[in-house]
């Protein structure tokens, strides 16, 4: 565990908590893509099946349980408790265009052709693109609430910090996982445009809105 990995995990946790609190405090999930949140719940479910097969550390187990629980809580708030505030008309990204190719790819390109490993690979590939429905929704409405941009910032920062973690681990531990690294690079690149808007607009106190 190095500092980049730890801050990456904490950044991920911050993103998840920010989103949950935003929905809970405002009693509304307006502007949030339920589809992205469903995909993230699927990502955590398929990745953390190893909770049943191997124990790594108390930290590892607790974080996994927190991520899974929070992602299901978020989906519950969007599709059940605050369903009336869910902006389904703008959440129109076709998720099958992500899930089907990603499913196919995880069968073709993986470290080991076993059920758990394929599901882990699926989750890594799916996570890299799971934010697309949310970004699509923002591009459609042309704006995002500031709190939503904070959520996106920490969610993007998490994978960027993991990239530094992987460079660190390559040099100091000889650790290298090509699948995770390539997917992590793709995932981080998807946030670049947003990072630019976040720094040039949101951090200067302006609302994130896109030109019409």
């Amino acid at each position: 565990m190095n500092i980049f990995r730890l801050t990456g995990d904490l950044s991920h946790l911050a993103a998840i908590i920010i989103l949950l609190l935003k929905i809970w405090k405002t009693r509304s999930c307006a502007g949030i893509s339920g589809k992205s949140q469903l995909l993230f719940a699927l990502v955590f479910t398929t990745r953390y099946l190893d909770l049943f097969t191997s124990f790594i550390s108390l930290y590892n187990t607790s974080m996994k349980l927190i991520y899974v629980a929070c992602s299901y809580a978020t989906v519950y708030l969007i599709y059940m408790k605050f369903k009336a505030t869910y902006d389904g008309n703008h959440d129109t990204f076709r998720v099958e265009f992500l899930v089907v190719p990603v499913g196919g790819l995880s069968f073709l390109v993986n470290h080991d052709f076993s059920p758990l490993e394929i599901l882990w690979t699926f989750s890594i590939y799916l996570e890299s693109v799971a934010i697309l429905p949310q970004l699509f929704m923002i591009s459609k409405t042309g704006e995002a609430e500031t709190i939503t941009t904070h959520y996106l910032f920490f969610l993007g920062l998490y994978r960027a910090l993991y990239l530094i973690n992987w460079i660190w681990r390559y040099y100091f531990e000889g650790f290298f996982d090509l699948i995770a690294v390539v997917a992590g690079v793709v995932q981080t690149i998807l946030y670049c445009d947003f990072f630019y808007l976040y720094v040039t607009k949101v951090l200067k106190g302006k609302k994130l809105s896109l030109p019409a």
């Binding site: 991920h12 990745r47 190893d50 590892n60 490993e117 996982d177």
Partner: peptide, 10 residues
């Protein structure tokens, strides 16, 4: 070494 299992990262 592909570090297949266990997965120590989240």
């Amino acid at each position: 070494d592909l570090n297949i299992n266990p997965k120590d990262e989240l």
